[in-house]
Write a protein that binds this DNA or RNA. Structure first.
Lengths: 145, 145
DNA sequence: GCAAATTAGTTGACGTACAAACTATTGTTA
DNA sequence: TAACAATAGTTTGTACGTCAACTAATTTGC
């Protein structure tokens, strides 16, 4: 039985593209003395977007496993970028906040990140980007079921 | 400084989609008693596609790190799906071959995998799939530089 | 024809993903 | 209100990805 080559398998292309983006981004992080990995940045940014957000909420909205988020949060706390504060009402919950240093670093990073995001898609038109986003979402929704 | 939400970042969408596909595929593998992970399958399939291919060639064409391939190959050898044979001419090189069991398993898996690939994209037209492939390739090429 | 450079593959260290089992707390309901 | 269910978060074990440093073999260039 003959199977199509990997290069024609769409999932393979998605995976390959994503790995390359991560690799490139991490290089750029290092080159600009950003003391974060990509995934640490994602969690960090999510907290910056909503001060006091809970760990669970971060996990849900980043589509990461709570176990992964627990560890990423630990790293960010160690790096003194965020703090974990137990919720006064619901003591199972931790609310996450940026430290002063975290806020400062966030302000420094946003323009850099925005530039980085642009880089890979700068040759694509607005329509193409939203097409791509739409197609990815449709696959996501489909497989989710 | 205000940054767009993660849900609008295209790289985030790619990552999320890919993780979900892997998760779903692995579930299906387990449900069908396929004793392989997704990445083990990719390497296994690549060897099935070209009997005697070298480890380096597998790494290049799957876009995996040689270190990853070394380990994936080890697993496949332990599972007795493939064998590693030192090249007679170039003794740095190992040529990879499916075992009899590997061949049998490959034949069993191909239809199942083909069905699995279809699942996520069955609502997309042929044109949409090739659009998606093209866009991903363009990002890949762009960032590669 | 030999030293230096290149190539194939391996190993170790670190970061992340995911599942499963677990603790502690809060909610629900009989 | 006591038992049970659900929820937030953690821990453990396994699997990959990537980088860097390494060994061994082969090529290159003088």
């Amino acid at each position: 039985m003959q199977d199509k080559p990997l290069s024609e398998v769409i999932y393979f292309k998605i995976d390959r593209t994503m790995r390359m983006i991560k690799q490139y981004s991490l290089e750029q992080f290092k080159a600009h003395e950003v003391n974060l990995t990509i995934d640490q940045w994602i969690v960090f940014k999510r907290i910056a977007d909503q001060d006091g957000v809970s760990l669970k909420k971060v996990a849900d909205t980043t589509y990461k496993d709570p176990a992964s988020v627990t560890r990423l949060v630990d790293v960010l706390v160690k790096k003194e970028m965020i703090v974990k504060v137990m919720d006064e009402v619901d003591r199972r919950r931790y609310n996450l906040h940026l430290t002063a240093m975290g806020k400062q670093e966030y302000q420094r990073l946003v323009p850099f990140i925005q530039e980085l995001r642009r880089k890979g898609i700068e040759d694509l038109s607005k329509e193409e980007v939203s097409q791509l986003a739409g197609l990815l979402d449709r696959i996501y929704e489909k497989v989710l079921v």
